[in-house]
């Protein structure tokens, strides 16, 4: 009950979240099978949020979406749904496995926003966005 206990609780909570979403080791004394199930449940919810932010990316993968998302983000510290979908779409495009509908969704985002892969995407100025759209179209 003394104040010295408080860091114990804070540290336990932080260690648990680190383990569940960012690949940290499971805290001592907890049931690993139950933590596995919890970790996957959190990933399903995270995949759902990314699917809402990137509907064509998720829809293009159909029933495979959860597997694709988990393969990329299990143990990877969360950023936000827009960035996570963006990262994944870019990686799939680079690997040549981005479905066409998802490619057009990505192109639309890249025309409107600038994303450096490390911080929140920023809206492009209007002339810059229009120019990118033109270039995209001419590339075709």
């Amino acid at each position: 009950m003394n104040g010295g206990d408080r860091p114990g609780l804070a540290a336990r909570q932080a260690a648990l979240i680190e383990a569940l979403v960012a690949g940290g080791p499971y805290p001592d004394g907890l049931d690993t099978a139950r933590l596995d199930a919890t970790r996957r449940a959190l990933l399903r919810k995270r995949a759902g949020r990314v699917a809402r932010a990137w509907p064509l990316l998720a829809a293009a993968h159909g029933t495979d979406w959860t597997r694709v998302f988990h393969a990329r983000f299990d143990g990877v510290a969360p950023t936000d749904p827009v960035r996570e979908g963006w990262d994944l779409a870019r990686e799939l495009r680079a690997a040549g496995t981005l479905p066409a509908a998802a490619a057009s969704e990505l192109a639309g985002r890249e025309a409107a926003m600038r994303y450096d892969g490390r911080s929140a995407p920023r809206r492009r100025s209007r002339p810059a966005a229009a120019l990118r759209r033109l270039l995209e179209r001419s590339r075709g």
Binding site: M1, D5, R6, G8, L9, A10, R12, Q13, A14, A15, L16, I17, E18, L20, V21, A22, T38, A41, L42, K45, R46, R49, A77, P78
Partner: peptide, 25 residues
């Protein structure tokens, strides 16, 4: 429940240890 700790978001509700310390919090 708690949903964040140590600067990270869990993304969903997580259970607390059912202790006097957690009751204080």
């Amino acid at each position: 429940a708690f949903v964040r700790a140590g600067g990270r978001e869990a993304g969903h509700l997580l259970p607390l240890p059912r202790t006097r310390d957690a009751l204080d919090v």
